[in-house]
Structures are given as structure tokens and as C-alpha cells.
Design a protein around this nucleic acid. Structure first.
Lengths: 363, 363
DNA sequence: TTGTAAGCGTTATCAA
DNA sequence: TTGATAACGCTTACAA
């Protein structure tokens, strides 16, 4: 493989000059420039990025640590990250399925020298001190963190407020006995949505009959099973709030097979607004969440952070949007943005939905 | 940031010894080993991977070049890649949305020195010479290539045979006027499925009335629009073959809104068997494709290739599976694997479906 | 068992 | 405008 030395020899110049020409980093006479380009082309020279990173102490790459890669949500997050990264000429080093703190730490470690910063979606709460360690090494942006970490940048989705909006909508439609299909334990999104569910019920002064919480794991299959459980209850609930759309689809399927109609017999609301939600029958009422933007914003914040370290910036919360379609039993479709005015910061602004955990800032 | 020199100084040994201890690459006395580990821990030393790659001439990372990241299919491919990579202790450098040859080449170039091999899903046909150039630099495994590239390793999905199986099944059920919702032009999967559609019709001696090809782009929305076109035809077809499940979902939605029943009035078959296919109503008959395995196999082949360069291996074709559910009008659900016996290589083996392009090897 | 020193392929700082 | 040359942080002969 040709190195800069080979090119230098072929062009009869020093390696310094080759570097200058290839990077356009200093004035070089037209004639030698030509010679160098010609030699590089002739030898089909590809520069070695590892060597470059070593001298420049910068990698032009960012690392991405995710708990999982399953489903359309993560797929969109990555798409957002990749898009922003390529626009800024950064490469993306990805790694997923981190079970615990030690693993996250090990992977971050192994990225030392290859990345300039890290986007992390932490799997569990034990990760907090790991994040601390990582922060000492790289600029870090957290995705949907459960807790605020020592002034670390973060971008999240308005899970709490989205859930409040969804459940409140069900209440407004007259539903009283509302049950929840939960997401997996330990998942930050699932927990925020669960809290939102409870908060909305409390605000409405509602206590559904037991049992009204059913466990799922964000897959269609788990939604299907949860719905079977629900149908075994002594009295059918008025409405089901599934903590994500995949589970809502499973619910829809199970309920349909049992001959129970949606929304006539039972209303259904999901979360995420994945692409197919609007094509289901009935079209799924859900909370739209911009997963692409989540990835995109994280990368932008990371780059901003590199430019201005030590600047404290409040966590960024991406608004959600309640999208009312047919599955909730609403006579007409409509939609409303939530959580863009919940922080209470706007003068005269009044929270649209009461929120004990405003904007999901801190539990 | 602590380097190996700092650790050496703190442990009062040479950097060579530190390296030996940290990598366990040579015998070191118990006592000094202790001292080195202690010093490394004390200084919280993280080795620099770029420097290591430079000396060892190996990066412990693989590059992944994809045309897009949209949808569940790619999400699964990446999951497969990531899983295999982490098992083999490789990092994954990912990059997507490559419009043309030059871009693919540029990205591959920029990865020089950071990766040991490359998994490439090429966007268009012009890419062939680019792949050639890349192959000179890295071990390369192609994903679903359109053409065989100079003895380059490849792993594909049995798109052609899957489509033949799907359409043949519709014919077997008595459907005669079968229309196709095509995938995007220039997409290798879409084209192979299109060829399979034609081959099956030809074998059956069928010529549906015009028009019987409708353009889509693999999204739900395009399937929806295509279905509206189809419903405007002077006579409703017996069956619709959508080149992927997302479009089939769009078709299902449009057809349902028009009051046309599936499968009673029109049969429907998709391709991919995404997670929700079985939860639709009616459950979608489709061709199951193992996207996870596609990524997984690609990485394994890459690693195998690194171990034994210059070995010529035939393209690996992952079998598809026709999964018959309710949307095609079949009275009972069943499924069958296709394309595991199509190459005609097995002695006495007879192709289950006639295939002018056996196993999609070469168009 | 340990240390010295020569790379690995760049960029960047000097002089010339 | 150019060329030596010293880093960058690590691994690995080769000596001791």
C-alpha cells in the first residue's frame, strides 16, 4: 500500500510537501502541486486516517452507544445521527446492546483515540458513574437520560407529557376505566410514560378497577399477550393505553381476534407514531415522537459542545404531538403539540397539562 | 490524558513492560505486573486505539456502507452486523445514504486505516468499478449485489425465488389477474422481485390485463397510492403482489377505505415478513426474509475472508420462506422454505420453482 | 525478566 | 516555496 513516502519519492518532493498539497494547508507552487497530485493519483494513494488522528489528536468521528437496535424507533434515531454526522463530515462508530455499566465503560474505553465525542443512551440507572468517567474523556451527549448527570448535555423526548396528553384525551372522550400496557422494566422511556399515565389519572381523579397495569416489552407479541390478559378481566375496560405502537398493534390484533371492536367496544391509544400507525384499521391514535430529530439534535449538540466546552446548557426536550385518529373513538381526527410550553418558563405561559415532572427534567 | 509513558513512569518500568502487562503479551514478574496495573488504575489510563492500529496495522473494526437506513429491514441488517461484530470483538463504523459511486468511494477512502474490512450494499450499478478499487484495499463482502463482482464474496437474499414462490402460490389459489406494486427503480431487491414476478407469470402461462405493474418506493404511502391507482382500473384484479410489506400495508389500508375486502374481493401478498405482518387483519401472507442473518453472515464471511484471503467462495444465498396467512385467501396457514434447493447443485435435486436466474446468482 | 530503540503514517514546526 | 525532523502513542524485535 502506498504511503505518503511513496508519493513523495514519486513526485520528487518531501513528505511535508505532499501533506501540504493534499490538505491544501499551505502555499505550494503550481508546478509541484501538479506533480504531487499526479503521483498520488498514479499510486492510487489513500491516506491512513489512524496516523492522521494520532498527530492531529482528532478523529473526525463520533461514537454512539445504544441499549438496543430493535425496531423502527432506534432505526430512526440512527438515521438522524448518521445524517447529521455526514453533513458535518464525521464518521459514526456504533455499538449497541449494552447490558450493564461495565460493558458501556469497556466499549467507551475501546473507542479512545478513534472518536471525538460520544452519544449515549444509557440502559440502566447504574450507569451514572460510568457516564461520569466517560465525561472526563470525551464530550458526551445523553439520549433520554433517566437522571440529570452532572451538567452533561442531554436531549430527550417528552415522554411524560406525551403520555399525560394521551391519557387526558381518553378521559376527555369519556373513558373512565383505562388500562395500561407498560413497556419493559428499567427502560427510561417506558418509565416516563408510566409516570405520565399515573399523573393524568390522578389529575382526573380516576382510579380504574384493578388490575389496570399489564406488562409488555415494547414488542407486538407482548402487546398481543397483554391484550389477552386484559380480555380475561371480569369487566372489559373502556380504553387501553399502550406504551408504544408496536404493542398497540399486538393489542389491536388480539382484540380483533376476540371479536371485540376498536374503538366501539374499547378505545386504543399508542405511542411513537411509527409509519404504519396511520395505515392500520382503525387508524391508530398515538403520540408522535420525532426519533430522527432525537439523533440529529444529539449530534448537533455534541459538535456545539466540542466548540464550546464547559458551557452549561439545559437538557433539550423535543416536543411530542398527540395525533388523534380513529382508534380512540374520537369523531374527528386532529392533533396538538405537547410539551413545548410545559417548562413554565414562558411569561404568562400556563402548562396545558398539569405535570409534576415538568418536561421530564427530573423525576 | 495519561499515556503509556505516564504509566511507565508511575510504575517505574519501561513503556515496553507496560505494554506487555496490559496486553498480557509476554512474561512479566508478578511484582512488576502488580505495580503496572496499580499505576494504570491510579492514572485511569485508557489506551489510544489509533496509535495501536498504527503499529499493529489492524484496527479491530469493520466498515459498513449502506444505501439507506430507512425501515425495519435495514434496522435488522445492522442489528445482525452489530451482533456478529461485538461477538468477534470488532467495532462497527457505519455510513449510509450513498447516492453514487463517487460517494461510496470517498467514504471507503476516508475509512482507510480505521477498518480491517468492509461490508457494502451498493446503491446502483455504476458502483462496480468502485467496488473493484475498494477490493484492492480491504477485504470486502457485498450485500445483495446486483452483479457478481470479480470473485468478491457476497451474501444475498433469495429475492427472485421468493417472488416466484409468492406469485406461484397466488396462481395455485386460482388467481389469474395478478398485479404488482413494484419497488423503487434501481433498487436491487426490487428488481429481483420484479423478475421473479414475471418469471412466475410466464411459467403459469398468464398475461394479466394491462396495466399490471404499479410503481412504488417501498413506503406505506406509495403502496396506498398504488392501490388507489389499481382500484381505478376498469376491472379489479384478483390479487396484488406488493414487493414489500410496507407497501402491502398501504395497499391494505387504501383497499379497506374503498370498501373492498381482503382476501374476499382481492388477495394480497407482501415481501419481508416484518414483525407486524402477522398482526394485521387479515394477517399478511408474505415472504419471510432474515435480515438479521444477512448482516450476521456478512460479518462472518468478512472475518473468514481475512483469515483466508484469495479463497474464492460462491455467493451465499439465504433462503426465503413463503409464509401463507390469511390475506392471500388460503383456507389454512402454512409455510415453506424456498431457494435452498434451487441452484441445481444437489444431485437429483429438482428446482421447486422454475428459475431462469437460479438463486439470483447472475441476471 | 526487563529496557532500548526502531518503526507505524501522518502533521507541524522549524530553518533554509 | 520547500525540506528536515520532531512529535503523536503504541507494539515489538533485539539486547542485556
Amino acid at each position: 500500500m502506498a504511503t505518503i513516502h511513496h508519493v513523495a519519492r514519486a513526485a520528487e518532493v518531501s513528505i511535508a510537501t505532499v501533506s501540504r498539497v493534499l490538505n491544501g494547508s499551505a502555499r505550494v507552487s503550481d508546478e509541484t502541486r501538479e506533480r504531487v497530485w499526479a503521483a498520488a493519483a498514479e499510486l492510487d494513494y489513500w491516506p491512513n486516517s489512524a496516523a492522521r488522528s494520532l498527530t492531529t489528536q482528532t478523529a473526525n468521528a463520533i461514537g454512539v452507544l445504544l441499549p438496543d437496535l430493535y425496531g423502527e424507533f432506534f432505526s430512526e434515531v440512527i438515521r438522524g445521527i448518521d445524517g447529521a454526522a455526514r453533513r458535518e463530515k464525521y464518521q459514526v462508530l456504533i455499538s449497541s446492546s449494552h447490558a450493564d455499566t461495565d460493558e458501556v465503560l469497556a466499549v467507551a474505553r475501546s473507542m479512545r483515540g478513534r472518536i471525538d465525542g460520544l452519544v449515549v443512551m444509557a440502559p440502566d440507572e447504574g450507569t451514572s458513574d460510568a457516564i461520569d468517567q466517560i465525561t472526563r474523556r470525551f464530550p458526551v451527549v445523553l439520549l433520554n437520560p433517566r437522571f440529570e448527570v452532572n451538567g452533561c448535555r442531554a436531549v430527550s423526548i417528552a415522554n411524560f407529557d406525551g403520555a399525560v396528553a394521551a391519557v387526558t384525551h381518553l378521559v376527555d372522550l369519556g373513558h373512565r376505566d383505562i388500562v395500561l400496557v407498560k413497556g419493559p422494566c428499567g427502560n427510561a422511556d417506558a418509565e416516563a410514560r408510566l409516570r405520565g399515565f399515573h399523573a393524568a389519572l390522578e389529575t382526573a381523579g380516576l382510579t380504574p378497577r384493578e388490575p389496570f397495569e399489564f406488562l409488555g416489552d415494547f414488542t407486538e407479541a407482548s402487546g398481543f399477550r397483554a391484550a389477552q390478559e386484559i380480555l380475561r378481566r371480569d369487566r372489559r375496560p373502556d380504553a387501553v393505553f399502550a406504551a408504544n405502537d408496536s404493542m398497540a398493534i399486538g393489542v389491536l390484533s388480539a382484540v380483533g381476534q376476540a371479536g371485540v371492536r376498536v374503538p366501539e367496544d374499547v378505545a386504543l391509544v399508542g405511542f411513537d407514531d411509527i409509519a404504519i400507525a396511520q395505515y392500520l384499521s382503525p387508524a391508530l391514535t398515538t403520540v408522535h415522537v420525532d426519533a430522527f430529530a432525537l439523533g440529529d439534535r444529539a449530534v448537533r449538540q455534541l459538535i456545539e459542545l466540542k466548540g464550546a466546552p464547559d458551557t452549561i446548557v439545559p437538557p433539550e426536550i423535543l416536543p411530542a404531538r398527540l395525533v388523534v385518529r380513529r382508534s380512540c373513538g374520537s369523531p374527528t381526527p386532529w392533533s396538538v403539540e405537547v410539551a413545548h410550553d410545559l417548562a413554565g418558563a414562558e411569561p404568562g405561559g400556563r402548562p396545558r397539562f398539569p405535570s409534576p415532572h415538568a418536561g421530564d427534567r427530573m423525576p
